[in-house]
Write a protein that binds this DNA or RNA. Structure first.
Length: 762
DNA sequence: TCGGGTACTTAGTAATCCGGAT
DNA sequence: ATCCGGATTACTAAGTACCCGA
């Protein structure tokens, strides 16, 4: 097995997509040039100060992380679209070209996080490419694959690979990692097939994603059930019977009445506009003011329904559960190349009101009901095609094995396409994931080269090269150090105003020649993906600072910071530096390398298991902070902390009591010296120990939770951390994998769990 | 080069599940 | 048996990346 997945399958067969003659024309092109002076009264304030030296996490740092509330409103953007566009065009035409080959000399020292150096020094695994990739070769990298153990497996694999088209059921596996048993039993019934180790098999080299694909199509949202007649809607205080269509849309609003969304003006406007489209002419003429609409009875009705659902008897609940399970078994799986694979989202999104995140101009719009006529089915020709519901037709059936989706439709809010795809545990997702980490590992090997190069180019007399280096230095700064997202352009007025690296505007950074005793400090403050605030201050080299100053010159706050840079230019350039390198690889690389480094640093060999896990979580946390993965502090957070604290207090009392007992038992034993009392002493001693352990466990838990208040670990764990690092760590310290990954995660990372041994190095 | 389109990953939150405490 | 709260799962929005044709 080689990790040397060619990373651009999609490129291989460009243009060969079947049937791309289908245009989806229902795109929303009616963007009235609305004013975008929408107030940025962002609902999110959960921003957090991110320490610039995120690399070194000490526990203290976690505890006294300052929180900076988002006092905002300052980032208003008043743009004249036309002017803006023209300006852009003009600037783009002067755009830089990065046509030169990178130089090779090194001169390190760009404010690089220390760990990176360390990492690059160990040149593990010289083992040169055994098994070259099936796809294009990469200029250099020996993809050190994992040492011996894996090599053995490679042989196994070699044998297997012939069977390719046949049903390959790898007999013999089931080295159950303890704890899997439970799952094992459960699924054994449903899945006679033993766990398939796709990672021991050959990948497609022709750009196809599968040879055979059969599924039953998606599950549609249940049809609308009109309200009982006693649930009434009032307009201007008077009862009014709504037509079914209008009523349905009204219920969407009624269901959200408790949510603060419904108080927002944009939401209300959008909703009302779309609602009116569903009304009969009479309704339309009557209902002209949303403020006069009274949805409370509907709202009450739905609340009662929810309540009733909760109160259902066990049997009823069981029945529902079984029904769901049945649907899952029927529609939740497909057959792809001889294997039954779980589908990720087999249900069509039900109609409702669009809930954008942050300050979204389209919040409240009606998300329409999707019908079979909207659905494109993708499956293989020779499969049993899914049947549309009686009396309906699919929009189209195609057989495109260059893509991974099973069904798709065009959504009416943004006009984008939605897909039904496989679960992360599937081969097709897993391979991609694995490949992603291999690309990041290749970056690790040349990151020093990249850094050295742009530093060198910087000094170049030649303007062109210098400019290229500047672009790169932002890469160095923004991607390597800060792990920012790339920052694609977005259509204004279509989405919330958020930015990433390339789309940063002048108003998003501040330069301080001196701040808190540090020289040349850059402050970042902007809203990123999902309108999560990113705030960070970081000292930079003088040269970088000066260049940034230059960039800010003669610009308005709402101008682009990097006016000649966009993700496409950036990625094109990165591609030249390393095959498969794109902006997002830096995030993956950064996250994984940080985890590995933090684990090394934080894990104490003599710690017990809970303490080790705390260390793991802290390492994970370091990454989450780096990547700015935040969450709203759970509503119940304070209370749950209190509960935990009282548990700890109780435990402490218990411990004191146990100690007293032990003492008296000892005294007793001294006097009496018989077997019985001796035994009693032993028992008491054990009790004390046990309680001490429990106490310590609770305290660790409290620390962990406190530190986690507004940081979400899940996202990085699932998307950025090479699972093999975690697996290796578990093996090294004898921590069972279940402590780190839950069942779903174990399924997703089955490949890593199976293949990584404790020596794995990212 | 630009806009449009497509495919796929990454993201936070809401809903639901489930197990332990009462 | 029920209730509570944390853990898990479901959901779907919001990103990245890259292709294509004019």
């Amino acid at each position: 097995m080689s990790g040397d997945h060619g990373h651009k399958d999609s490129k291989i067969d460009s243009g060969s997509r079947v049937n791309d003659s289908h245009k989806h024309k229902d795109k929303h092109k009616d963007k009235e040039h609305k004013h975008k002076d929408h107030k940025k009264d962002r609902e999110r304030e959960k921003s957090k100060y991110i320490n610039s030296e995120h690399k070194e996490f000490s526990e203290k740092k976690h505890r006294d992380k300052d929180k900076v509330k988002h006092k905002d409103g300052s980032l208003e953007r008043h743009k004249d679209k036309h002017k803006e566009k023209e300006k852009r065009k003009e600037e783009k035409s002067k755009s830089l070209t990065f046509d030169e080959k990178p130089k090779k000399e090194k001169e390190n020292g760009f404010a690089s996080p220390p760990h990176i150096k360390t990492e690059t020094e160990d040149g593990f695994y010289q083992s040169p490419k055994h098994e070259k990739s099936l796809k294009r070769e990469h200029d250099d990298d020996d993809y050190e694959f994992r040492p011996k153990k894996i090599k053995v497996e490679n042989e196994k694999k070699a044998k297997k690979r012939k069977q390719e088209e046949e049903d390959i059921k790898s007999k013999k596996k089931t080295k159950d990692k303890k704890g899997d048993d439970v799952d094992g039993k459960k699924r054994a019934k449903k899945e006679p097939e033993e766990k398939w180790k796709w990672w021991e098999e050959e990948r497609y080299t022709d750009g196809s994603k599968w040879k055979f694909l059969e599924h039953k199509g998606p599950v549609f949202a249940p049809p609308y059930e009109p309200l009982p007649s006693n649930v009434k809607f009032y307009y201007d205080g008077k009862y009014m019977k709504l037509s079914p269509q209008a009523e349905e849309v009204a219920t969407f609003f009624a269901k959200m009445l408790d949510h603060e969304y419904t108080t927002k003006e944009i939401f209300r406007q959008n909703f009302f506009k779309d609602w009116r489209k569903e009304m009969t002419p009479e309704e339309k003429s009557k209902i002209t003011d949303l403020n006069k609409c009274d949805f409370t009875e509907m709202s009450e009705y739905f609340k009662a329904q929810t309540e009733a659902r909760k109160q259902m008897s066990k049997e009823e609940k069981q029945k529902i559960k079984e029904e769901n399970e049945r649907i899952l078994q029927e529609y939740g799986f497909c057959v792809m190349d001889n294997h039954r694979e779980r589908i990720g989202n087999f249900r069509i999104e039900p109609p409702g009101l669009f809930r954008g995140r942050g300050d979204h101009p389209k919040m409240g719009m009606l998300k329409r009901r999707i019908r079979p006529e909207d659905i494109i089915i993708n499956c293989s020709k020779d499969s049993k095609h899914p049947k549309p519901p009686p009396g309906t037709k699919w929009k189209e059936i195609r057989h495109d094995n260059k893509v991974t989706w099973l069904a798709s439709w065009t959504e009416n809010i943004q006009g984008s396409i939605k897909y039904i795809m496989l679960n992360p545990s599937s081969r097709i997702k897993g391979e991609k994931d694995w490949q992603k980490y291999e690309t990041a590992r290749r970056l690790k090997k040349c990151v020093d080269r990249i850094r050295a190069q742009y530093r060198d180019d910087w000094k170049s007399k030649e303007m062109r090269i210098r400019q290229r280096a500047l672009c790169l230095s932002y890469t160095g700064l923004l991607h390597l150090q800060l792990a920012l997202r790339a920052g694609n352009e977005k259509e204004e007025g279509e989405t919330a105003d958020t930015v990433g690296c390339c789309s940063l505007r002048v108003e998003h950074i501040k330069l301080y020649p001196e701040l808190n005793g540090q020289e040349f400090v850059v402050e970042f403050d902007f809203l990123g993906k999902d309108s999560i605030r990113y705030y960070n201050t970081i000292p930079v080299e003088k040269r970088v600072f000066k260049n940034l100053q230059l960039f800010l010159e003669n610009k308005q706050p709402e101008d682009d910071l990097f006016d000649r840079l966009n993700t496409s230019i950036l990625n094109k350039h990165l591609q030249e530096l390393m095959d498969g390198l794109t902006a997002k690889v830096f995030r993956t690389y950064n996250a994984s390398i940080t985890l590995q480094q933090q684990l090394k640093e934080l894990t104490c060999p003599e710690d017990n298991i809970p303490a080790k896990i705390l260390s793991y979580n802290r390492a994970n946390r370091a990454v989450a902070i780096l990547c700015n993965h935040q969450r709203a502090p759970p509503k119940t957070f304070e209370k749950s902390m209190q509960n935990l604290q009282s548990k700890i207090d109780a435990k402490k009392d218990q411990l004191a009591e146990a100690r007293r007992e032990l003492k008296s038992a000892k005294a007793d034993a001294k006097v009496r010296k018989d077997e019985k009392t001796k035994k009693a002493v032993e028992t008491k001693k054990k009790a004390v120990q046990r309680i001490e352990e429990q106490l310590m466990k609770l305290e660790v838990q409290a620390t962990d939770r406190e530190e986690n208040k507004q940081i979400a670990l899940g996202t990085s764990k699932l998307n950025y951390l090479d699972p093999r690092i975690s697996v290796a760590w578990c093996k090294k310290w004898n921590v069972t994998i279940e402590k780190i990954y839950n069942k779903t995660q174990r399924e997703k990372f089955a490949w890593a769990i199976d293949m990584a041994d404790q020596d794995f190095e990212f």
